[in-house]
Every structure is written in structure tokens, then in C-alpha cells.
Nucleic acid binder design. Structure first.
Lengths: 132, 132
DNA sequence: ATTGACCTTCCAGCAACTGGAAGCCCCATG
DNA sequence: CATGGGGCTTCCAGTTGCTGGAAGGTCAAT
């Protein structure tokens, strides 16, 4: 398989696959022509990485997850711990965004949004000390 | 005022203030010794930017907001539109994170997390095709 | 032989900072 | 008046995770 096929089948852009090789997330063989030669196992790993990334794991976490995946003697506790920590980070991020959202929604609601210059949104940004 | 005072009073790191000047988000005067000389209005603007950033506005959005803030003839409708778009982006981000969270929480729940290697989390990442 | 689609490498850039080095400047103390 | 420590300056590099583009080699088909 060449990189184009793998890109299509894994859903990852070819550029991204090259990047993953460059940072040592995956090691690839080369054909006589210099082209990367992908085995099924490489495609499999890349799909694994793609799914982990879609769940928001960082590249370094993906590296660890891959290592655990390939370690037949792993303890699932470690995987669970890693995933649990990541879950906490996601929760923190959600909470942060929801707090922003609340403030912003309040301000948007309070703004007339017409052709006059008076704007509670700008007033809040300017003053900090605001209503309700 | 020197940068240290402004950093403390605005809550922004000195490095960040220098960066904001470098990218032209704010223009600062210089004293005879080469030090940045901050006026009250500069502090005010920086606090404005800090609050906008805390609400998740990008630097470019901050630039626009500042311009609107300083334009006495602005139409609040434009501010509201900008904020409304940003609100939509926040909502999209929250939805994305909540979707991740749901999958991940499900997997974490399903994993025994003991000293045995069997792990539904890794199985899901490997296979994609998973349970319930 | 010549397209045209692939593949290769390398370099640059995005957002929004952050850290560190090297070197002035200013004030207070001995 | 020298010295020490803190604060200020600039510049360069690194962060995360790619993405775009240029210049050039390869391959399969016409």
C-alpha cells in the first residue's frame, strides 16, 4: 500500500501520516523506490491513532496508548487511569466553555443589536463591573 | 507606569503585553530610557483585551472589538453579530467535547481497570466497531 | 516519449503565547 | 562612589498538531 491508499482508508491526510512518522509515532518501511510501504498492521495502527485523536487524546497520550496496546502484559488499570485523567481534562474544558457561554449569552441577550452605539457587551468588556 | 505594574493590575503577564504590542494590538509610548510608558488608557485597553480573551474571543476578534469600542459611531448590531457568532462556535465546541466525553465515559466505565490486560478502551480504539 | 497522478523532501506558517539568554537601567545601601 | 539586585529591553527558540507549497523523482498508460 502507498500513502494515498492508507490516507483514504484511515481517514487521515497523507501529510498527517508523514508527520506521525517524522515524530516517531509510527515506524514505516520503505520500498526500493523510496516510497513508504504500508503493511496492514500500519494501517491498523494509524486507524487506532485516528480514533484516539478523535477522542481528544494528545499525541503523547496516543504514543502511550499504542505502547499499551502492543504490550500483551499490560494492566488495564493503567489504561483506565490514563483515560480517566483525560476525561477529567475534558470535563474541565467543558466547564470552562460553559462558563464563557453563560456570560456571553447573557451579554448577547442584553444587547439591542441595532444601529445605535450603546452596547452592554462592550461596556462589560470595558468595565468588568457589570449588572446582575 | 512600567510594564510590571500594568501586568499586575491587568492580570496579563508582561510577556503577553509585549506580544500584544508586537502584533499591533496595542500601541505604546516609550520613555527616554526605552521603557514602555503606560497611560491609564493603555491599562484600560489591556484589561479590555484580557476580558475578551477570557470569553474566548480570538486575537483578531479582540482587534475588531477594540476598534468598535473606540468608534463612538459604531452600531451595536455589529458587536452583537460578532458575539453571536462566537457564541455559536463555543456551542459547537461544547457539543464536540460532550460527544467525546460520552464515548470516553462509557469506555472508562466498561474497563475493569485491574491488573489484567483485557481492556475495552483499547479494544474500541483498535476496532472501532464496538458494543452498545 | 510524454503526459499526469502519484510519491519524496524540505521549508514556512498558523495561534497565542512562553522561556531563556544577553545586556541596559535604576535605586538603595555601604 | 561602587556594587548589588531587581526590572526593563531585545531577540531567538520552542510549544501543539498539523497544513500548504515548491522542487523534484517515479510510475502507469497512451
Amino acid at each position: 500500500m502507498n500513502i494515498g491508499d492508507v490516507a483514504q482508508r484511515s481517514g487521515l491526510p497523507a501529510k498527517t501520516i508523514r508527520y506521525y512518522e517524522e515524530i516517531g509515532l509510527i515506524t514505516l518501511l520503505r520500498g526500493a523506490n523510496g516510497y513508504r510501504a504500508f503493511r496492514d498492521s500500519d494501517l491498523h495502527k494509524l486507524a487506532f491513532i485516528g480514533r484516539a485523536r478523535a477522542l481528544g487524546f494528545s499525541i503523547e497520550e496516543c504514543r502511550t496508548l499504542l505502547a499499551l496496546y502492543e504490550d500483551a502484559g499490560r494492566e488495564s488499570g493503567e489504561v483506565k487511569r490514563l483515560a480517566g485523567e483525560h476525561l477529567k481534562q475534558i470535563d474541565a474544558k467543558i466547564a470552562e466553555l460553559q462558563s464563557m457561554r453563560a456570560t456571553l449569552a447573557h451579554l448577547v441577550h442584553a444587547c439591542a443589536g441595532d444601529d445605535r452605539p450603546d452596547c452592554p457587551i462592550l461596556e462589560d468588556l470595558a468595565g468588568g463591573a457589570c449588572c446582575s
